[in-house]
Simulated scan of single mutants.
Amino acid sequence: MSNQLRQSGLTLVELMVGMLIALVALSAGGALYLSSSQANRMLQMQNRLTEDGRFVLQMIQRAVAQAGFRNAPGEARGVGNAYLAATSTTSFTVGFQADNSSMLGCTGAVIAGTGNQSLVIERNGSCLQCRSAGSAPTCPAPTDVNTAVDWVGPFPNGGGLGSEVVDFQVLYGIDTGPNPTAPEISCGAETRDCVVDSYVSALPNGVTIDQVMALQICLILRSENIAPEMGSKAAVANCARNGTINGSATDNRLYRTFRTTTQLRNF
């Protein structure tokens, strides 16, 4: 009878061991989840920077490829009869004629109609913007401004998911000679060899805009979002390679540098 009334169960020691094992398992699972979440967030930030940088370079290359296009030889080329206005190291303007079929505007859509057009590409604070008319809008550009668009920049309503421009540099590749030894190796009616001899931040005295053969672009983007788990890292060199981006070693943000050289073709 006494055997039937006997109850079995866990001893205090067994209960404590079980709780310890469960606690260890929960801690390991939590650490794994946290590590996975951080890695996923870092990957999303890296992908965002890469996509934004590639998009900007693609849009710049398309705009520069249009510079100087005209529907018939001898017609004006859009910016004071020039294909390019070398404004500064952070801004330039391309001029061309629209053809109602293939010339693209700032949004990437085909420009309707024909006639002279110009696109201004410039850094404005933490945005890189393209505009076809008017003055530079605020950064980020308002959605009701149909003449300007942010090619890259922070999100208009915050949220930390955008990319910020921390450096942008335009260098102008100029042809200063020597003259070709035979007319057949010159480009068109030019008496120069049409090969870039140097890249400059501003056109020297005696060099005209028609001697610009290419643009060298540098863009440095930074994640709008902060990743505290990054900790300290090496400082990021600026576009001119003569210094570093202030705070880049300790601000817990991701950085990406993009460079490209784009040839001008419609002389």
Rank of each mutant, 00 (worst) to 15 (best):
G206F: 11
K233F: 09
G206K: 08
P228F: 11
R256W: 02
L221G: 06
S223N: 10
I209W: 04
S248M: 06
T244A: 13
R256N: 13
N252W: 06
N242M: 08
R256S: 13
N242Y: 04
N246P: 03
L215Q: 00
E224V: 04
R259H: 11
G243T: 07
N242K: 06
P228S: 07
N205G: 13
Y255G: 11
N246I: 13
G243Q: 07
V207R: 07
G231K: 11
L254Q: 11
N225L: 12
L254P: 03
Y255V: 09
G231W: 07
K233M: 14
N225V: 10
N242A: 11
R259E: 13
A249Q: 07
Q211H: 02
T208F: 15
M213G: 04
N238T: 12
V236A: 01
A237S: 14
F258D: 01
V212F: 00
N252Q: 15
T208V: 12
N242I: 07
L203V: 06
A214F: 00
G231P: 09
R256Q: 14
A234R: 01
T244M: 04
G247I: 10
I220T: 10
S232M: 14
I220S: 08
T260S: 13
R253P: 04
K233R: 15
G247D: 04
S223Y: 03
V212H: 06
T250H: 11
N252A: 14
N252G: 05
N252Y: 02
A202D: 10
N238Y: 06
F258R: 04
I209V: 15
G231L: 09
I220K: 09
C239E: 08
N238V: 06
S248I: 12
C239Y: 13
N225E: 13
R256E: 05
L221I: 12
I217H: 01
T257N: 10
M230G: 08
V212N: 02
V236T: 12
D210M: 00
C218L: 03
V236H: 01
N246G: 10
V212M: 03
R222T: 01
P204T: 09
D251C: 10
G247V: 05
A237Y: 02
N205A: 15
S223H: 02
Q211S: 07
N205C: 02
T250D: 15
L254T: 07
M230H: 02
L254G: 12
S232R: 14
N225W: 08
M213S: 08
T250S: 15
L215P: 02
F258L: 00
V236S: 00
L215A: 05
N246W: 01
A227Q: 13
C218S: 09
M230Y: 08
A234L: 12
K233D: 13
N246T: 15
A234T: 15
T250K: 08
L254W: 01
N238K: 06
P228E: 03
I209Q: 12
C239R: 06
T260K: 01
T260V: 08
A227K: 02
A227L: 14
L221V: 12
L203P: 08
T244I: 11
C239K: 00
V236K: 05
M230T: 14
G206W: 10
T257K: 13
I217M: 11
L203N: 12
G231D: 11
V212G: 06
A249T: 00
S223I: 01
D210I: 00
E229S: 15
A235K: 02
N242V: 10
D210V: 01
L215R: 00
D210R: 11
M213D: 05
I220E: 04
